[in-house]
């Protein structure tokens, strides 16, 4: 029993079994991490993932949030919907046409830029949005 637990933990640590992050809403399950630290998905198809980048310049939160908003609005054609201030972070909601919604929260620490992305089909996302926002609001960078 103990050996099985150790084996499972080892596999999880090696990326064999995806693990749900702390505070993850019950309706999400962990899925393939891909390039992310973790990635979870709801039955409706909404995906949430976290990524951390080592800070190479002295970017401030305002800088990172502005770059993110301009990148999506101007370079990628997403429609900005709204912005929300978080503790050490900013969350921005975009609409990708009629099909999809995309929310990105950026956090900045002394050493890292952390991004938490959430997206999915528009209707599915709207159903999951409140739970995702509540979860992101509690995240500590």
């Amino acid at each position: 029993m103990k050996r099985t637990a150790i084996l499972l933990l080892t596999l999880a640590a090696c990326g064999g079994i995806p693990m749900k992050p702390d505070g993850c809403p019950a309706e999400f399950v962990a899925v393939d991490r891909g390039p992310y630290e973790w990635r979870v998905m709801s039955a409706r198809g909404t995906v949430v993932a976290r990524r951390e980048f080592r800070k190479q310049r002295d970017e401030t939160l305002d800088f990172v949030a502005t770059v993110t908003r301009r990148e999506f609005e101007e370079a990628r054609g997403y429609a900005f919907v709204k912005e929300e201030q978080l503790v050490n972070g900013t969350a921005m909601l975009f609409s990708a046409g009629d099909a999809a919604s995309y929310l990105v929260a950026v956090f900045v620490t002394d050493a890292a830029i952390i991004t938490v992305e959430a997206g999915g089909p528009k209707e599915a996302f709207e159903t999951d949005e409140a739970a995702i926002r509540a979860w992101i609001a509690k995240m500590k960078p």
């Binding site: 995806p18 393939d32 995906v47 990524r51 980048f53 990172v64 997403y78 999809a100 991004t115 992305e117």
Partner: peptide, 29 residues
């Protein structure tokens, strides 16, 4: 939406890594 030519091109890995395409590309393991 602004034409790509006039849009800013940021040389930052973190912003280029963002977006729905990568996020939604979940593979079976």
């Amino acid at each position: 939406p602004a034409k790509a030519a006039a849009a800013p091109r940021y040389p930052f890995a973190w912003v280029r890594a963002l977006g729905l395409e990568s996020l939604m590309d979940v593979r079976e393991r």
